[in-house]
Design a protein around this nucleic acid. Structure first.
Lengths: 214, 214
DNA sequence: ACCCGTATCAAACATGTGTTTCATACGCGC
DNA sequence: GCGCGTATGAAACACATGTTTGATACGGGT
């Protein structure tokens, strides 16, 4: 009785899907291959047959989920738009990527867990997903602060922007306690993005090109 | 052979200390009572004798560590100082609290883990540590945005400030990959605090009292 | 019809780990 | 000196869980 995973797809695909859910929900250590296989409607031995062991399954899950997330939530910025507009679009796309509840909603949780409890797959995640996004943001910030993307100002400014965004993902339990009845509806996310954009544009202007490096 | 825990203190105290280290390093699931007891120089049965079970030990560890952190890294703000100065002092104290490498350096990691993988002790952590800090910050932000502490502007502004701060704790593995050779020396933390302060003061001014609630 | 690689299954295996047990030693009041 | 509550010790227990095994079914190519 596989819950969500499409019954028509192959066992390997159902395993990837189910494992993504369970790993995101419980974390690598607390996830059991039995629960994953039950959710996928597969036999316990299937994970060994297709992936070798639990750790390899996790790596494949993370890689697969990240690919899915990059194509499903692309961050496409119009290079000809003014920098302020590009920052707004970046923040909107980035927030949608990490806060959206759609499928696969668990890629954000997987990334958070990988940050807190790094595994061998961390490098892959950084290089395929984090670094490209970071470079994209750095370019925008550099223009807004009139510095080079390698400058200390650009680095600090980008961290301020990303920090405001990931806050709502990393600290979700605390936020829910401080402000119950808070949800991540698309309209809420949009308003949040607009706030962060306005806040950051002013902040970046105040930073300026003071402590530049190159 | 207890490593760090003072051998002169009682078994219960050594257990609390060792468990804090191990839980922070490995997380609750991956931590073993055997490793904790070995580090504390205590017998395996000691954890059951003094705390009942592993979960209760964890709760006591979290509570004890948070108390220690609150007294060791107090956030004392001069109420008569101007709001901008109070914000700067808050950010400095808050960053020092979560980034300092001193003892017990693991309270920050414990809090991060509790956010990502909440346990029964989450409520205690929120009420004793998070909410008071949040209220303190809300008061400062409210004055800077000329709104009530319950306003949407104050809430969003406070989240922007906290987000910038916790970013450097939650995303430390990623930051280390993007910028190797980055450390959290006291001077670095001070400069970081000054950046966040300048960035936030400008951002808060730009937000203003537009979408107020009460 | 037969073979063979692929895939699935139930059952068993090995082991790490939280927890318990029971014995022993210590310290102190009487 | 004696009893008693506290504390510590080594060993065993119970169980969850990752992994493996050997059997069985399926399906296409010859």
């Amino acid at each position: 009785m596989p819950a969500l995973p499409g019954d028509q797809s192959g066992t390997r695909e159902r395993l990837l899907d189910a494992a993504g859910q369970v790993f995101a929900d419980r974390g690598f250590a607390n996830a059991t291959v039995r629960e994953i296989c039950a959710l996928a409607g597969a036999n316990i031995a299937a994970v060994n047959y297709y992936f070798g062991d639990k750790q390899a399954l996790y790596s494949q899950v993370l890689q697969h989920t990240l690919e899915l997330a990059r194509t499903q939530y692309p961050i496409n910025i119009n290079p000809t738009a003014p920098a302020a507009e590009r920052l707004r679009d970046f923040i909107r796309a980035f927030l949608r990527r990490i806060l959206d509840q759609g499928r696969p909603a668990w890629h954000g949780r997987l990334m958070v867990r990988e940050m807190v409890e790094p595994t061998a797959a961390l490098d892959m995640m950084i290089e395929t997903t984090v670094r490209p996004t970071w470079q994209l943001l750095l370019g925008i910030i550099a223009e807004l602060t009139a510095t080079a993307p390698t400058s200390e100002s650009a680095k600090l400014g980008a961290m301020s922007v990303i920090g405001q965004c990931v806050m709502h993902k990393h600290c979700q339990p605390a936020i829910s306690k401080l402000y119950p009845s808070e949800k991540h509806h698309p309209e809420t996310v949009r308003m949040l993005a607009d706030h962060i954009t306005a806040f950051s544009l002013a902040g970046l202007k105040a930073i300026g090109p003071s402590p530049a490096n190159s």
